[in-house]
């Protein structure tokens, strides 16, 4: 349905997006994920024909966005970051205007407007002026405007920003409901949102795609790594080094404690670095492991064996947040490492 080929957009020397390639199939719900300023909005604006790319091509339903903009725009419902609503119109008037503007069949407009109002739960405010509505309602009016002409493709730029938790849940439910009938591309920097509503995720960072996979695929990609957090009563000298030398432990970090805590890291062969001074006090360690259960068992044995006084131990499963953080920060780290001439 949407095909993006080598899409690049530069603002002067700054490249907002750099040779993006992806496609969205009919009926799919795709999450477009990335930190602020990653290029999500720019990409969406280009797909909707709002903006021209510096180079590259976008095809929507087989039509080139720049050769046939009017036909493409008929097929797309777009919700920009700021909902494009007119304060001096009532909700109903606005939706009628958008439907006309989108070129919907005249006879169908009353039923289209009624359907959009019903789907976004705007029945109570249909006669109110938009300028008197709260931010959450305006956002919903914006979404309502995007779906009113019943377009094949919905492009929603951060649809849940500024909504309260209940409204967020409603919008997510709405996206799920719309999923069957429309192809949806949804951008967000909020992770639970994609988890809740998207089948496929494209993670973008600094104008490049860093990962493109299904939710399961991405989580699996991270399997083979896990995290264990332990809290011990006494900071035993050498505990961090000992933990670091366990096979399967990748990194040990003392994150809090009443003592000056050091760091130890290991490549798995037991070459500990750093030190923890031996002063009594509670310490919390965060340990990155290969995710194997054996490793967790060894960690527990080591802590108890050293008599550090194990107070708490929990194993955290890898969630999308870790995937996201790793994918979007690894690139930056690589960059800085190269700059510093350090081998990682």
């Amino acid at each position: 349905m949407i095909e993006v080929r080598d899409l690049t957009k530069s603002y002067g020397l700054h490249k907002a997006i750099d040779r993006l390639n992806f496609s969205v199939n009919k009926g799919e719900v795709v999450g477009f994920l990335g930190p602020n300023g990653a290029g999500k909005t720019t990409t969406m604006k280009i797909i909707t024909g709002f903006m021209a790319p510096t180079s590259g091509q976008v095809k929507v339903a087989g039509l080139d966005v720049f050769e046939d903009p009017v036909e493409v725009k008929k097929r797309i419902g777009y919700l920009p970051e700021t909902p494009p609503v007119y304060g001096d119109m009532t909700v109903e008037e606005y939706l009628r205007f958008v439907a006309h503007l989108k070129g919907a069949e005249r006879a169908k407009i009353p039923s289209l407007v009624a359907r959009a109002i019903e789907k976004t739960n705007l029945g109570d405010v249909r006669k109110r002026l938009i300028q008197n509505l709260s931010k959450g309602f305006r956002q919903r009016v914006g979404i309502s405007g995007a779906i009113v002409s019943d377009p094949e493709i919905l492009i929603l730029d951060e649809p849940t920003v500024g909504l309260d938790p209940r409204q967020v849940a409603e919008i997510r439910a709405l996206v799920k409901e719309l999923a069957g009938q429309h192809t949806i591309l949804l951008s967000t920097h909020i992770l639970p949102e994609v988890q809740a509503s998207c089948e496929r995720i494209i993670i973008i960072n600094r104008g490049r795609i860093v990962a493109e996979d299904s939710l399961d695929g991405l989580t699996k990609r991270m399997s083979g790594s896990g995290r264990v957090v332990i809290r011990v009563r006494r900071a035993i000298f050498g505990l961090a080094e000992a933990l670091g030398s366990i096979t399967g432990v990748r990194h040990v970090a003392a994150v809090s404690g009443s003592v000056q805590s050091g760091q130890a890291s290991s490549n798995g062969n037991g070459n500990g670095l750093g030190a923890v001074s031996q002063v009594a006090g509670e310490v919390v360690f965060e340990i990155e492991t290969d995710g194997a259960e054996d490793t967790i068992e060894k960690i527990a044995a080591q802590v108890v064996g050293q008599g550090a006084g194990l107070m708490e131990m929990k194993s955290e499963s890898v969630n999308l947040e870790n995937v996201f953080l790793q994918l979007t920060s690894s690139e930056e780290q690589q960059g800085s490492n190269v700059a510093a001439g350090v081998q990682s």
Binding site: G49, P80, V85
Partner: peptide, 9 residues
């Protein structure tokens, strides 16, 4: 709201 006009057919 100009965004709406520019992304409309």
């Amino acid at each position: 709201t100009f965004d709406l006009l520019l992304t409309s057919p």
